[in-house]
Amino acid sequence: MKNIILCIALLAASIVVNAQQDSPALEADQNPNYKLSQDKYTANIQAEYSVLQGTTLQETYKAIDPLEDKRQLKALKKKYRAQRPYWRQQRRLERIRNTRYYNYNNYSNRNYHPRYNNYYNRGLYTRHRRNIRNYSFGYNTIGLGLGLLIGSTF
């Protein structure tokens, strides 16, 4: 029993001695809680500031300068003006892609119905295909005339 107690006491003493050896002695007037701060700042030192050393952090602001603003606006307008042909081309391509084609040789009922014809002859689908619009306009008039005739008979 005495041996066990002696062993435990020796073990505890060695742990204490080791702990004292691991932690360096405090400098004169050094704060005893310095380890808290040291651990906090050594944890993220690499990611935060050390990589930015010797560089310039750009935290610029926009100065009030009407003349400079005018110049910038002019440059922006010029840039957009230069892009306009490209946008027009894109718009044309998009319209071509979204065009609906109909079989106009097939005389279905909708060709004679003014409501459907008005719907399908709206600008988005047919404005760029003038020949189709003209044909459909022709059918519209025929359809409208026939519709009125049928309506008047009933």
Partner: peptide, 10 residues
């Protein structure tokens, strides 16, 4: 050691 220089100009 040279550290960060902050450019806070316009």
């Amino acid at each position: 050691i040279v550290c960060l220089v902050r450019n806070k100009s316009h």
